[in-house]
Nucleic acid binder design. Structure first.
Lengths: 250, 250
DNA sequence: CAAGGTTATTGACAGTGTGACAATAAGTGT
DNA sequence: ACACTTATTGTCACACTGTCAATAACCTTG
């Protein structure tokens, strides 16, 4: 670092601006891709659904702020979820109170439990993303746009990385993983082909043994798999994107 | 908009933070992928190379700030270049003077002219990205990381969109486009295959006529092409990524 | 003008990946 | 043992890719 004196900025020289993080926390529940939304308790947009978020603290890294928000809102730690910055939104009018620039993040959480609506202050819920995509629900601020971008990134990333597995527990069956992909695009995938793609991908490895998958106890037991190393590209897509509702095959 | 009074934020309640945009402006010059860098004129990092950038103005959209910086630094307007937000960087120590959160953008410019080192205040230059990638040049602040991320995004986007054509003039030959891709990965592509991929892609269309390409006047004249519509995915990659320096084929 | 050189464009072909779908395996419940 | 369900493995036609050859169209030179 050079030794000359630093010409310190005078913060008063620059207009006040607040920096926040907003989170699109995704999970699969009831075979449906859902996002965590909170109900706003005050103006503006009082009563409307919004992405959870909060201010970035003075000495806090952006990623740390996002991880903290994730933990505060869901109890999920950074290790248990996949967390990635999306991009920033800073339209001058996006918050009527003052200039707020928000850094959006998205997260993939394994089977998040629906928030118990119990006597808590803020109401929160896991809402199917389709309800926002078809505009049945209108989010506060520019959060509809943010969520749309987050969904686009999530789906794109699911195509060419193993991130879909972060919706599952550490050990998962190929069918569980397939159901994640089916939920993400609301479609149906061929079990045989999906199996082949996972087996050929270098991003997954068969687990030594492990607990048998619980739940359905019908049909041939499936073997367990896990992610190999970090989320690198599996070479070719696990599943090519398909049209919306092709759940019916001849 | 709800009618209740807004609980106005008190800017003094939140720590001072500055928001800037930093730009990775790419272009192809001498068949080499280059990035525009400026020499810092003051501390910190005085004398070091840095990405051009500046403060976001009070009532300025982030994209507008990036477009303004691009214009100020290169004279190129938003229409002539491809401009996209990358992500934000906000480590608390990234600028020793105060908390600065920067929103990084990257741009693809058609044959940008090398800045004339003439008596201008700040020195600027089009530096081959390889010089930064191989760490021959160390950038100020966290700009090496930003540029690395921008390069990753640029190359990734070039694989599955027609963004590479934004390095060319509006009408271009397939060879010109191929040379862009060859420069981006410092590799060699088979002309026949590349031709086939472009012709099959729905992202390009043959131009009616147009000026014959200037420059080399040797060999069979090439037909001119242009981008069809916006930059959507061309279906399959124009060129799959290859190893660094495979320029020699038996 | 014909020959030779250079780039553009089109074809031919083998190898590989993909989607559709059939067949087999290995459990559960009756 | 039989019926049913899910997992896993195979088959096969077809599309896509990379390699490499052939042709086209222009420029320069003798």
């Amino acid at each position: 670092m050079p030794g000359s004196p630093l010409p310190a900025y005078n913060p008063r020289d620059y207009p006040p601006v607040a920096v926040t993080v907003d989170m699109a926390v995704f999970t699969i529940h009831d075979d449906t891709l859902r996002v965590l939304l909170v109900e706003r308790g005050e103006e503006p947009f009082k009563g409307a659904w919004a992405l959870p978020g909060g201010f970035v603290r003075p000495d806090e890294d952006l990623n740390a702020a996002a991880a903290r928000e994730l933990r505060e809102e869901t109890g999920v730690t950074e290790e248990d979820a996949y967390l990635e910055q999306l991009r920033s939104y800073g339209s001058p009018q996006r918050d009527p109170r003052m200039r707020v620039i928000t850094v959006a993040y998205w997260a993939a959480c394994p089977n998040l439990a629906p928030p118990t609506g119990g006597g808590d202050a803020a109401r929160a819920d896991l809402v199917p993303v389709s309800r926002v995509e078809d505009l049945s629900i209108d989010l506060a601020f520019d959060h509809t746009e943010i969520l749309g971008d987050a969904l686009e990134r999530l789906r794109s990333k699911m195509e060419y990385t193993a991130v879909g597995a972060r919706f599952c527990r550490p050990r998962f069956t190929i069918s569980e993983l397939r159901r994640v992909y089916e939920a993400a695009w609301n479609t149906t995938l061929d079990p045989g082909n999906f199996q082949r793609n996972v087996r050929r991908s270098s991003s997954f490895k068969k687990a030594r043994s492990g607990d048998p998958p619980r739940g359905h106890r019908v049909g041939r037991p499936a073997s367990l798999w896990s992610i190999r190393g970090e989320l690198s590209s599996p070479g070719r897509p696990l599943a090519t994107r398909r049209g919306p509702r092709a759940k019916n095959r001849g």
